[in-house]
Design a protein around this nucleic acid. Structure first.
Length: 281
DNA sequence: CTAAGTACCTGTCCGC
DNA sequence: TGCGGACAGGTACTTA
């Protein structure tokens, strides 16, 4: 479900609600979603601790506790983290874990498909234990994510640019929706080999990625089915998408019908006119 | 190393 | 209505 903009929207809300709150107890309904350490150790590491703040890296949500422990959440396809003032407000039919907080409020982890992954680390220095977290590339909207960076990293990749964008070791946080949207804005065909991009393409792509990510956050994320923000509400960015989930509908720029193909096993949407494949020498 | 295919799950939608 | 198959905001693992 959530890509970087959705996780960032959740983070911002939860940070306002959870900062300074104490975790009194934990109900674990599906222990296999706790990947490290074992569920009993996990429980011991957070019970009685205060939440110092809520952070994010790529699509990972990070709760920093007063004892230095870092609780790590990856929501994968259908995970949700929703805060409720009272326990009886929770109507999630796929509740997998509940943190009971001071004053009777709760933080609910719900997950329909149960792909989500939870971890507790003694300190942030232990992030190496989570391979996907330790190997993340630069974040969009930072100085490190530049046209020059894209130019350098694409030189060595024969993968389609769509697959390159989904590779979290290249850029942190882009998922299937925002990859398609960014390629549309940058006018690049998704099957273009990464190392066939020009420097001008890399400049356009860096701007496009930053724009779609910023727009997604501004609109509170994109909701098709499962995504909810930390308040249990839907996002609005689905109203502003250019190509994702718009197969057969007219391109907002030129009116040509949006096409859907498979790239690297993922559904991929693009405008065949605006994103024409360039012939290469 | 990269690349491709499969696995992990549940729910929904579409065609017959 | 019912059934089968494809598909879904993701990543990790196995195999070539």
């Amino acid at each position: 479900m959530p890509e970087m903009p959705e996780v960032e929207v959740i983070r911002r809300y939860l940070d306002t609600k959870l900062r300074g709150r104490r975790i009194e107890s934990l109900d674990i309904f599906l222990p296999r979603q706790i990947k490290y350490p074992d569920p009993n150790a996990y429980k011991a590491m957070c019970t009685g601790q205060k939440i110092a703040n809520v952070n994010r890296r790529g699509k990972y949500l990070l709760l920093e506790l007063s004892n230095g422990v870092e609780l790590v959440f990856h929501l994968r396809m259908t995970g949700r983290l929703v805060y409720h003032e009272r326990e009886d407000e929770n109507d999630d039919t796929h509740t997998r874990l509940i943190f009971h907080l001071d004053g009777g409020s709760i933080l609910v982890f719900g997950d329909t498909r149960t792909f989500g992954a939870l971890y507790a680390l003694d300190t942030p220095a232990e992030r190496w234990r989570i391979h996907g977290l330790a190997t993340l590339g630069p974040e969009p909207l930072t100085e490190e994510f530049s046209a020059g960076y894209l130019w350098e990293r694409t030189r060595r990749s024969h993968a389609p640019i769509k697959s390159f964008l989904l590779n979290q070791t290249m850029i942190a946080g882009i998922g299937n929706i925002y990859a398609d949207e960014a390629l549309f804005l940058a006018k690049i065909h998704p099957l273009t080999k990464a190392n066939a991009l020009t420097q001008a393409d890399c400049e356009a792509l860096q701007l496009a990625v930053d724009q779609v990510i910023a727009d997604g956050i501004r609109d509170g994320g994109t909701t098709f089915r499962d995504y909810q923000n930390g308040e249990g509400k839907q996002g609005l960015h689905q109203e502003h998408l250019y190509v994702y989930n718009r197969e057969g509908e007219p391109c907002r720029r030129c009116g040509t019908k949006i096409e859907k193909i498979k790239v690297g096993g993922r559904g991929t949407h693009f405008c065949p006119h605006c994103q024409e494949m360039k012939p290469h020498a």
